[in-house]
Amino acid sequence: MRRAVLACLALAALGGCAATSVPWQNPDVPKSQWSRDWSACRRWAEAQAGYREDEGSGVFRDYDRAAAKKQIQAYAGMCMTDRGYLPTSKK
């Protein structure tokens, strides 16, 4: 697990773990910046939610995972909105 995280961090420095599809847009920011901002907001949102996949077990684990996913999406949305982004229209 730690090796995977370290590998991802190393690749992130090179742009390998950046989000490929950014569901947000900001006409005032270069398009090349969008994925970096989205990745930064996702990392911040995950830290705010505090959910760790390796914690807990049992009946409530799936519920906890789903609740954390919703919370992460909400935090990431707030972060992107604060940076001036708007959600892209769903096609």
Rank of each mutant, 00 (worst) to 15 (best):
A49D: 04
E55R: 15
R2S: 09
R52A: 02
Q73H: 10
A45H: 11
A13Y: 03
R2C: 05
E53F: 11
Y75V: 03
K90F: 07
Q25Y: 14
G77R: 12
I72N: 04
W44L: 09
C8I: 02
D64F: 03
G56H: 00
L9Y: 14
W34Y: 13
R65A: 02
W38I: 03
K69H: 07
Q71N: 13
R43P: 00
R43D: 04
K90T: 10
S39K: 13
P30E: 10
A76T: 02
M78Y: 05
R52L: 08
N26L: 11
G84N: 09
D64H: 14
A7H: 05
P27W: 08
Q25P: 00
W24C: 08
R83V: 01
R2P: 01
Q48G: 02
K31Y: 14
C41D: 05
A12M: 12
Q48I: 02
R2L: 15
Y75S: 05
G56I: 00
D28P: 01
A74W: 15
C79H: 13
C17V: 03
I72A: 02
A7C: 07
S39H: 10
V5W: 06
G58T: 03
Q25G: 01
C41W: 10
Y85N: 08
R43V: 03
S89T: 12
A67N: 07
G77D: 12
P87M: 14
A12K: 11
M1Y: 09
P27G: 05
K91C: 08
